[in-house]
Design a binder for these strands. Sequence first.
DNA 1: GACAGATTCAAACACGTGTTTTAAACTGGT
DNA 2: ACCAGTTTAAAACACGTGTTTGAATCTGTC
Lengths: 213, 213
Amino acid sequence: MRSVQPNPQSRGKILAAAGELFAEKGYEAVTVRQICTRAGANVAAVNYHFGDKESLYKEVVASLVAFAGRAASESHTGSAEQQLRQFISRYLHGLLGADRPAWSLRLMQREFANPSPALKLIVEAVVQPTERRLRGIIGRILKLSPASTSVRLCAHSVIGQCLHYKHAQPVFVHLWPDLWGKPDRVDELAEHIADFCLAALRGMARSKKGRND
Amino acid sequence: MRSVQPNPQSRGKILAAAGELFAEKGYEAVTVRQICTRAGANVAAVNYHFGDKESLYKEVVASLVAFAGRAASESHTGSAEQQLRQFISRYLHGLLGADRPAWSLRLMQREFANPSPALKLIVEAVVQPTERRLRGIIGRILKLSPASTSVRLCAHSVIGQCLHYKHAQPVFVHLWPDLWGKPDRVDELAEHIADFCLAALRGMARSKKGRND
DNA sequence: GACAGATTCAAACACGTGTTTTAAACTGGT
DNA sequence: ACCAGTTTAAAACACGTGTTTGAATCTGTC
């Protein structure tokens, strides 16, 4: 119908569309035809610009790492307990927020459960810095070394609770629609998780004093 | 080479092989040829016995529901806190244990994150009874109604921590090989989660007394 | 032993996938 | 206006998928 209008930013559009789709459905479930349709490009564009589907995925992960790595090194402020609240809130918003950096955390979560060779990169550039930061906060609360096993386990207790609401999202929507309908549900969830974890950490810090650990 | 030896339990073998594979890799990632190879059957067997791949999956879910539904109604004993420890230990062993009912919990977890029409069945037959039981235990500890929002959120804090170690298993193996090498790692994890949650619940119960909630 | 029904087998089918091909269109420089 | 290099387009390719086919084989019964 209309004459062909060239799109010099086709590469970028494909990269963006691929990021959304990979995060949404996973690597295998997304077809290059879907990506190109969303990007308004031809099927062959993926192979022309990126070589093949796998290389495109690697570039998506690379851009994710560059972005999320920056976010992971954002500093928190206030007391250790306030910092933990901030951490949880940011993390949960990244997972569940509609606006936000969008798909980056979601794609990472997919990599965790269904790893590809790109996992190593993500772990080193994002997961480890994030875990280090969280262990630092928890270490201060528990008055233990950030490297201790207790702190490490507690850090995963925090992260596990956050990720749960992403992982089981379909179940929640089906099972618990009232909370999921509210617009500020994420803040409520973040507040609960923070309350829960801080209560746990205070209790563990107290009971630790008795023994020598 | 050898003459064809008929296998009258071919149907059952396919069902078992399909269960393992679906739990391991997910519905889409498993091919009927893989299933039939593992079951020692011909490719056409699945369509002969079950009609198509989707019906086979439904039967797998049905057998899962029958089994896991029974397990979900097993009773716990002792004080509320002991019951919580039991609950966490059983749940985690079901997720991570090598021996155990094997794939049932793993397949459910896959349904949660990537739901099919079978999700509704699983939720009603397994998830809701499990959640009810857990809410009962937590309600007794917090001295609150099992239906209250606080109890519900705490229940998901417990379950979320358990599921995390399944979801992120590949990351842990890559990032934390020392704990993951130990044979009784599951017991250690269960103990930590129970300690963490009980500390949290005691703390929340205490702080609840001050206000009126 | 022979028959009828149930089951298994190898082969083929229709379709969707990632990828490649080949020609056309665009772009900027002269 | 022309031309080389870059980008896009439609079609076709090779392959893996779930499924179907029709013949061969087994099973139980007479």
